[in-house]
């Protein structure tokens, strides 16, 4: 186990190292001056320029420049954005929570839809209920996320005028950004009607959450259904029936745990897919998260922001995946690396 953990951490370390090299080289590959692309300072005064050259070690060779860059990264100095002229880390710390928040809600919803539907489909397999869930899930699985989002907007916002289509809270509510997590910020805010604000947040959440959750939800349905089917074929289930237990008894005592435990890791790994979907959906719903922020950075050719955003997102995904790997090993040592997604 220790050996495995060390191997994983090793992988994490080197991947992050490669990412930092890539992000460093981006500054040279983008058009313009590499120092400007790294620091984000567009027209520095001579004094600023001197101090930037000093901290980025412009005069030494690429290796030492990279070391200087790495040191600045670790110190939390990621440079500033061309457009907002704010430190990148500040921008990231307001946009990232918005994405995490949206993804978490969507993931929770996906599990709430996926697990019960998957179990029912598994229990009733090859009956009409199973077929309808399966075909619905196939449909949900095949629809591109951005298209689904647009259809939902068309229906609920433009045709029925029921739900808002942009942002995460109406501009009527002046909620100062503290943590970046809107619900926490609402409780911290003063002079606003908190109930109304929370209700408004809820309405803003519905469409983006739904459009991300449906795709992941359908994948979860298929994973869970398959697992339930597997378990139902096991000898111990037959034995339980043989002891005269009812369907419900068999399911709750033997079926549920045994079918969910092995697929739990599979379900959790869907989170990274969901995160990328969330970043696409953000752009459609003008959600102030990191996906939207990165797209804006690309439109405005904000090179430091593209570099910083890419580094932040990829590091997070890798750290998440690797800590998950370790966690899975802890929960179920027999499985380990043999995980394959069976859909």
């Amino acid at each position: 186990m220790l050996n495995y953990t060390i191997r994983r951490l090793n992988l994490l370390f080197f991947t992050l190292l490669v990412l930092s090299v890539v992000s460093f080289s981006l500054a040279f590959l983008f058009p313009g001056d590499s120092l400007t692309n790294l620091s984000g300072v567009k027209s520095p005064t001579p004094i600023q320029l001197a101090s930037l050259q000093e901290s980025y070690k412009v005069d030494s060779n690429y290796f030492w420049q990279y070391i200087a860059y790495l040191r600045l990264l670790l110190d939390g100095d990621w440079g500033i954005s061309f457009t907002s002229q704010q430190p990148l880390l500040d921008d990231l710390s307001t946009t990232l929570p918005a994405t995490v928040e949206l993804s978490t809600y969507a993931f929770t919803l996906a599990i709430l839809i996926g697990v019960p539907c998957g179990i029912i489909a598994g229990l009733k397999h090859h009956k009409i209920f199973d077929f309808s869930i399966l075909s619905a899930s196939l449909l949900g699985y095949s629809v591109p996320v951005f298209w689904l989002a647009l259809i939902l907007i068309q229906l609920f916002s433009l045709q029925l005028s029921l739900l808002p289509l942009s942002g995460r809270i109406s501009l009527y509510f002046d909620v100062p950004i503290q943590s970046g997590f809107i619900i926490y910020d609402i409780f911290q805010a003063e002079n606003i009607d908190k109930t109304a604000a929370l209700r408004d947040v809820f309405f803003h959440l519905i469409l983006p959450t739904l459009s991300i959750a449906i795709m992941t939800g359908t994948i979860i349905i298929r994973i869970v259904r398959r697992s339930v089917l597997n378990v139902l074929e096991q000898d111990y289930i037959k034995a339980a029936y043989g002891r005269g237990q009812t369907n419900a008894q068999v399911f709750w005592k033997h079926g549920l745990r045994n079918s969910l435990l092995p697929v739990l890791p599979l379900i959790v790994t869907q989170f990274t897919t969901l995160l990328t979907n969330a970043m696409i959906v953000e752009v459609i719903f003008s959600w102030p998260g990191i996906g939207n922020w990165l797209i804006q950075a690309i439109y405005q050719r904000d090179y430091p922001a593209i570099r910083g955003g890419m580094l932040m997102v990829s590091s997070l995904v890798i750290m998440f995946t690797i800590s998950l790997d370790i966690l899975i090993r802890v929960i179920d040592p027999t499985k380990g690396r043999k995980i394959r997604v069976a859909v």
Binding site: I113, A196, R199, D200
Partner: peptide, 13 residues
Amino acid sequence: LLSSCSDIKHNEL
């Protein structure tokens, strides 16, 4: 659980 999200009221701000 599936239908909990259809409880939508018009948003009067």
